[in-house]
Design a binder for these strands. Structure first.
Lengths: 345, 345
DNA sequence: GTGAAAGCGCTAACAG
DNA sequence: CTGTTAGCGCTTTCAC
């Protein structure tokens, strides 16, 4: 056995001593350098195995100035959209040899501010951030220099890369689909009181544009604001809509979770979907492919979004000199039972 | 401006120079030590603010031997059960001042092995691991000394802390519930061909015990194996069951996702749930509270599991000398529409 | 109360 | 091809 008979982890020095070589040689072997004799290599390798040597990443990072760790900051991990996105980001990052550390902001201003302030102190090489509460001003004010890629709406032409989909166009497409089905009393669930929420604002805009195009009025009572984008909020909003003297015959929900909540509420009230009320969601979460009925939805290309974000970060880490990117990821509209009913029936 | 006029991040030395004190004093201020004059403190603080100083966590870790980062290794982040669990773990860890880094294993042997081998170098202080493919033998073989807490089934009395629920009892309760409703042809979805899967084995055992207690036979054709625990697997399994000459009048699915898939399949075949076939799941994911019909399910106390796991790790990090803990978290059975139908109808 | 110096484990630079 | 040295930024002695 080597010097580290007890539990204390072995260092390069221990391995070098056991193998009878210098630390540099061990380092060369560990890092897979070519200029090492096979005999030396195998001798070192044996020492490594014997001591169960693992490189100390903190020391390496201190020396090299990078950790190969990036942070992914998002509101809630148990919101399916973000969970699916996180899965893709982690997968893409892994291909680059990066580890992902998760920051859960709960969409709270102070948490998001901390993330932006670089709370992770040089621990991370880069940050992929999906802001909810923070707006353009907060981002402009940022002093931390950690490379940043923003996910979600394009809030401004700031100093950060940005990956988003065309919210207005997608919202217009979703609403137009309902119009095309002959629906005339089309409501929207997901407006947000806070002016910071670009997402809600843009989707609302697309909704209004589509109505205008169809010559339909925008009825204020058909635009329902919500606090969060959870199932319960969708259900509550639907309750309000169905209580109206003239309830809508279609509802465009700004995310799938609310759409699912709204469908559940319709079911409880005995209102058949899509016959009496058609429902469209947004996010294309797996759940909507198995719900009863299945959910028509706007499909942002999540894998694409994830890979673009990771690629941007990679470019930024390569040489910090490129101009900010802004990219619009593609989307499609998946038409399912919640608007057109069951085929062959 | 201080020495770091350009973008290079400021170090303790820079701050010390600007404030006209030694690095030690700055360190004292940063770490909130008491023995510092108010005047000194404020002077240092001003320098910190001016230079936007952030401590270098890698250097601190190298010196202190700990990073306050833990890893959470689980199969897939977009499986709602794990997403919800991850959320809780991150929240609990945060209360301890820890950051969580996610390792996604996809349930693959090699990935799980890497996690266990301490691939993270000394980057992480501890590991919370939910194994799928690895069994007792692999865990026994582990050489890495990073404190480990296992989530899920108690595969063995090994050298690691363990948090799980009583799978046999919960499976028995779920099956007994179906028996109590008068169902007599009760199937099970989720058996696993691999002998390593303790989870599937234990749940199957509980199912069989409950049938035996009720004097019902265990029909081999009613026990359906699956590859993964996804919605699609549940749907496929249900297809097989409904194709039987004598289809079951109840199905116990080993997780919610498969139950949801099974419900969808029943719907597509025009088989009413729960009238013709009652369905029980396992995990109590949020989705099952809004599905149509809502899903009867075994509810493991996820928050409890998360906090126990984090607490174990904390104890282990405090002084590495305690004996391994094994704790059984509580569970309940949530009875919903998928077995008893809609109340008041 | 504050300062000076050593060293955590590693790799970059330069010798040999 | 391999060895030596220095130093990343921080905290931890130990002086003062």
């Amino acid at each position: 056995m080597g010097r580290t008979a007890s539990g204390d982890p072995a260092s390069l020095k221990h391995v070098a001593a056991l193998a009878g070589v210098s630390v540099k040689t061990v380092s060369n072997v560990v890092n897979g350098y070519v200029h090492v004799t096979d005999t030396t290599r195998s001798r070192v390798q044996r020492a490594i195995d014997e001591l169960h040597y693992r490189p100390n990443l903190a020391a390496r990072q201190l020396r090299q100035g990078r950790s190969d760790v990036i942070a992914l900051a998002l509101p809630e991990l148990d919101l399916p959209y973000f969970a699916e996105l996180a899965r893709s980001v982690i997968k893409c990052a892994e291909e680059k040899g990066w580890t992902v550390l998760i920051d859960q902001t709960d969409g709270l201003v102070e948490r998001e501010q901390l993330v932006l302030d670089g709370i992770r102190g040089r621990l991370i090489d880069g940050l992929i951030f999906s802001p909810i509460a923070l707006g353009a001003a907060d981002l402009e004010r940022r002093r931390d220099t950690t490379p940043l890629v923003l996910l979600g709406e394009r809030v401004f032409d700031g100093p950060a890369d940005h990956v988003a989909i065309d919210n207005v166009a997608a919202a217009r497409a979703a609403t137009a689909h309902l119009v095309g089905l002959g629906r005339r009393r089309i409501a929207a669930i997901g407006a947000q009181p806070l002016p910071t929420s670009q997402t809600a604002h843009l989707r609302l805009q697309g909704y209004q544009e589509a109505l205008a195009e169809a010559g339909l009025p925008v009825r204020p009572e058909y635009v329902v604001p919500v606090d969060r984008y959870h199932r319960g909020d969708g259900a509550a909003a639907m309750r309000r809509l169905l209580d109206l003297p003239e309830p809508p015959d279609a509802v465009f929900c700004f995310n799938d979770l609310m759409a699912l909540g709204a469908m559940r509420e319709a079911y409880e009230r005995g209102v058949p979907v899509p016959h009496d009320v058609a429902i469209v969601g947004w996010d294309d979460i797996e759940e909507g492919r198995y719900s009863i009925p299945t959910l028509t939805t706007v499909c942002p290309d999540k894998q694409r979004i994830a890979s673009l974000a990771v690629d941007f970060l990679a470019a930024r880490l390569g040489d910090g000199s490129e101009p900010p990117h802004e990219v619009t990821a593609p989307f499609t509209l998946a038409v399912r039972e919640s608007t057109v009913g069951r085929p062959g029936r």
